[in-house]
């Protein structure tokens, strides 16, 4: 496999409206994506390019984390010319950036912690006309192909994928503390985000490059072409009402309330199972 760059798509974890952006920098899945991208970069001897969309005040911190972790290049795309856009608008911008850097392997987080739709990675694959796989846990290199382990909830699946490909990566498995403590952290903030990339980090981060800022027109993206989808973004509303749990005075009272509210009733028979046994729908 030629050592074309590997693109890792990152995004600063968004604070709730009205809250300050001071918590975690990377979401769990983005941390997994960065880790996988750096591992692949080390195995393929390929540079890893971190790409982010948004203003410097929000995204530069996440790109700085990526550079310190071992990415060879970091690119931030200024989207100030567009308003609020949906997953497809974001995907259009990122797909153009991926073409711009010439990556054949793209690694993204499976779902963000704030919005959680998980739509951007598959949409980029559609725009690039390449394969994609979601819910990826681990990736290995086998010849000119990649072998990915997919966590499918009730199944664990292994796939062989031929690049170009977009991999949507889940959070790294929660390692027991003893194992985590055995490996020194890069930095307190980043310890969880990039657990498996330290050798690559040391090798690549001797000189830390600066963050490149790219305009939409540098990528051939017309702002008006990505803007008109505002109706599909949805309206953000704060949930009001319940005002906290209804507290029970005793465990017995709690069970009684749950029963009175019909929450302890046995599950209805599985209709599919009923049909299989001939009992009808």
């Amino acid at each position: 496999m030629a050592a074309a760059p590997i693109a890792v798509l990152l995004r600063r974890l968004q604070a709730r409206p009205g809250a300050t952006e001071e918590g975690e920098v990377l979401g769990r899945c983005e941390g997994g994506a960065l880790s996988v991208a750096l591992e692949l970069g080390a195995r393929l001897d390929a540079p890893v390019v971190a790409i982010s969309v948004g203003p410097a005040r929000r995204e530069d911190r996440v790109l700085a984390v990526a550079l310190r972790a071992g990415c060879g290049r970091a690119m931030r795309i200024d989207d100030s010319e567009v308003g609020e856009i949906d997953y497809l608008g974001v995907a259009q911008i990122l797909a153009a950036a991926i073409r711009h850097v010439g990556a054949r392997v793209v690694v993204a987080g499976d779902r963000s912690q704030d919005e959680g739709a998980g739509a951007v990675g598959p949409a980029i694959a559609e725009l690039l006309d390449c394969s994609h796989l979601t819910s990826v846990r681990r990736v290995a290199v086998e010849g000119d192909a990649l072998v990915a382990v997919r966590d499918a909830g009730d199944r664990v699946q292994r796939f062989r994928l031929q690049p170009p490909v977009v991999l949507c990566v889940q959070a790294p498995p929660a390692a027991p503390a003893a194992a985590a403590a055995a490996a020194p952290a890069l930095d307190d903030d980043e310890a969880e985000a990039v657990p498996a990339s330290r050798r690559a980090a040391k090798k690549r981060a001797r000189t830390v490059p600066t963050i490149e800022e790219v305009e939409l027109h540098d990528l051939g993206v017309e702002p008006r072409a990505v803007s008109p989808r505002r109706t599909s973004v949805g309206k953000l509303r704060q949930v009001r009402g319940k005002g906290g749990a209804s507290l029970a005075g005793s465990p017995e009272e709690l069970i009684e309330r749950l029963r009175a509210d019909r929450l302890l009733e046995p599950a209805p028979a599985d209709p599919a199972a009923a049909r299989r046994s001939g009992a009808g729908p």
Partner: peptide
């Protein structure tokens, strides 16, 4: 919303130029 719907739905929406709600 099965294990595959997330893999399938977002890309289907992109192919159709549709909105996507998970």
């Amino acid at each position: 919303a099965t294990a595959g719907s997330h893999d399938l739905g977002a890309r289907l929406a992109a192919r159709l130029g549709a909105a996507y709600v998970a």
